[in-house]
Amino acid sequence: MPRALALDIGGSKLAAAVVELPGPVVTHARSVPTPAAQGGAAVLAAASDLARQVLASAVGEGVAVEVLGVSSAGTVHPVEGRITHATDTLPGWAGTPLRDHLQHELGLPVTVLNDVHAHGVGEAVHGVGRGHRRVLAVAVGTGVGGGLVVDGEPVVGARGVAGHVGHLPVPEAVGMPCTCGREGHLEGFASGSGLRAVFRTRTGQDLTARQIAGLASADDPGGLHDAARALLAEAGRATGRAVGALLNVLDPDVVVVGGGLARAPRPWPSSLAEGIRLEAMDPVAATPVLVSGAGAEAALWGAAHVALRRATPPHAAPADSLAPPDAYDPTVPPVRAEEDPR
């Protein structure tokens, strides 16, 4: 059976394992905290060391590994596998030549995906989306992200940016600052960090999204309980609006909702459905919406799946609609019409 070394680089944890497909069967798993505060170079060194340890452990037991699949926070250049943009969760991560560095360090062919894209592939191919050609994955946790997976490949876009579900505008977030520097986006209101900020503004109480969900589910009506339920209802509806809009544009077979808030208590689930009904056109309004069951390992599954797939003809080169060989490079100035060399 084909095996890949898989590496997941997140803001708080680094994880690596050997993934055997089909299955998936995960072995030799290890994880360490991400040294994010020490900067991008320290994160790269720690990730390389962890991958090297897992690879050595596997080889020592006679387990052959063919490729390395990487799931990383940040925007990933679709051809070069370098990090073009990253948030303050990983200071100094932008600009990291992730693919080239890991290929040099480990001697394996390397494929790098954005972490949400990798998670979406894992869920689509090996999770609750299995058996469907077009799966829209939406992750609602500390932030909000997503990705469209078609025939086992993530649609990453010309710049690697496709899937930023959290940066769709929704009326519930009007006037609220977003992590991208704009206002009125879903993530600024309905993510875990957004819920915390809104609840603090409304009640003066600084509670995490988990604590807010706990208040909403408690059998103690009045006061903070009512405020928590009202906020979860608004957040669910806002998320549903974004999903409904995406159904109109993408028309997937199914939607898979994951992340910590995907299992939030009432009224979040019913409000999610309400938001979808408010925005989705009739032909797509009944698209099944499934709750993720894969957990954190889905990113490892997805990274391994794509790395093995692209290493095997005819998938060695990404399809034009996913990551063309001449994909947009934000460091190269555009050629104006009058400067066209042809």
Rank of each mutant, 00 (worst) to 15 (best):
A41K: 09
D326F: 14
D115I: 09
R241I: 14
G184A: 02
V256F: 06
W268D: 02
G188C: 02
D8C: 01
P177H: 08
T203I: 08
A190T: 03
L148R: 00
W268A: 10
T142P: 01
V125Q: 05
M176R: 15
L5A: 09
A6C: 07
A41I: 03
V128H: 08
G141F: 10
A197C: 05
T208S: 15
D100Q: 15
A317D: 15
L148D: 02
D226Y: 10
P177S: 11
A230N: 08
A17L: 10
D320F: 14
T201Y: 06
G166L: 09
A304L: 07
T87D: 03
E279G: 05
R202A: 12
C178N: 04
G143W: 05
A162R: 00
P177E: 04
A45R: 09
H85N: 11
E297H: 12
P330R: 11
A235M: 05
A233V: 09
D151A: 12
T201G: 05
S270W: 02
A227E: 14
L44K: 02
D329R: 08
R342G: 14
D282H: 12
V110K: 00
G147P: 01
V335G: 09
R3P: 00
S193I: 14
A37S: 12
G204I: 10
P324I: 14
G10D: 05
T89H: 13
A17Y: 03
A285N: 07
P109E: 09
S48F: 04
P177C: 12
E20R: 13
G258V: 08
A242S: 13
P22H: 05
A337L: 15
P109K: 10
V26G: 01
L250M: 08
L113K: 03
G120K: 05
G188F: 07
R266T: 15
P221K: 11
C180H: 03
G214P: 01
L231W: 02
V116Y: 09
A228Y: 05
I9P: 03
G223D: 11
G240T: 09
S217Q: 15
P78I: 12
G129V: 12
V174G: 11
V112H: 02
E20F: 11
E66L: 13
S71I: 08
S57F: 11
M281D: 08
A124V: 10
E172H: 14
D115R: 09
G143D: 00
N114Q: 06
P324N: 10
A16F: 08
